[in-house]
Simulated assay, not measured.
Amino acid sequence: MTGCISLSMASFGLMSIIICILLFFALAPINAMVDFNQNYYPLWGQNHITFLNQSTAVQLLLDRNSGAGFRSKLQYESGLFTIRMKIPDKKTNGVITTFYLISDDQAQGVSHDEIDFEFVGTEGKLQTNLFANDMGGREEVYQLPFDPSEDYHTYQILYSPYRIVFFVDNIPVRTFKNNTNRGINFPTKPMWIEGSLWYSQSLWAGSINWNREPFIAYYQDFDISGCPYQPDNNCTSPVLYPWIRPKLDQKQLQVMRNFRQRHMVYSYCRHNRGRFPECVHQNT
């Protein structure tokens, strides 16, 4: 994509720049051959992480002793963050398979920024959530129209100062606009990219069936398209970073509405409308 932008600027002018940006936004390049160690490192449960295919894929294992997790080597202020993931195929509640962004101040009980994909159990129930210098609570849950344990699928988080968009297989499923001028919280901090496989001991995810352990999740596509956090970095340039001012066109908005109508089974705005001011505004 960097090459696309440079070529456009040199040879084709403004229209080609716009085309490159639209292509980037509509369908990020998927490069499943990037080595895990180029951009990530094991964060915990190292003895439950196995490297596959010359480290272009990893296997996370969950048993009664431990799960596992990994983290990006850098923090990012904005970007389009992609992973291809296959969740455990043994059916149970309680298993949590994740891909998310998170700020440094994530200690329990502390307000922080976080943008989540979380599979709750292994029956295709996908939850998204947002923390915006607070304790979150902005869950939306979708029952996917496919079995995410049968094959790899693509999950993307677009994080910019203006908008957050969640994608599943290049379909936008949720968007959250920066409306801080209306008193609505919005994530603003540099964040790590993380993935993990763990189990919940609380009732919100249900009880795990340990008779089916171990549970195994697979991840691939470890390329990162983002602006790293550095004191002298300008992560707000739409020319250098085409995800900065994302806007869904009418076709994408209709696709998103259709997906949400058919597959969303829980929305925090339906149950906690008075708690979150964004729930009274159109957030697209």
Results as ranks from 00 to 15, higher is better:
S6Q: 15
L14G: 06
L22I: 05
V34I: 10
F36M: 07
F36P: 08
N53H: 14
S55D: 13
S55N: 15
A57E: 14
L60S: 04
D63I: 07
G67K: 14
F70Y: 13
S72D: 00
L74S: 13
L74K: 15
S78G: 10
G79E: 06
T82I: 09
I83Y: 01
K86M: 09
P88M: 05
K90I: 04
K91A: 07
G94A: 01
V95R: 03
V95S: 07
T97F: 00
T97P: 03
T98E: 08
L101S: 01
L101H: 00
I102F: 06
S103A: 01
V110A: 01
H112W: 03
D113I: 03
D116L: 10
F117L: 00
E118F: 06
E123D: 11
L126K: 10
Q127Y: 01
T128V: 15
F131P: 12
D134V: 04
R138Y: 02
L144W: 11
S149E: 03
Y155Q: 08
Y159N: 09
Y162H: 15
R163L: 07
I164H: 05
V165P: 08
R174T: 08
R174P: 13
K177H: 07
N179A: 10
G183Y: 01
E194R: 13
S196N: 11
S196D: 10
S200T: 12
W204Q: 03
N209D: 15
W210R: 10
I216M: 06
F222H: 11
G226E: 10
Y229C: 11
C235Q: 09
L240P: 12
P242Y: 09
W243C: 09
Q252V: 06
Q254L: 03
N258E: 11
R260W: 00
C269M: 02
H271C: 04
C279M: 09
Q282N: 14
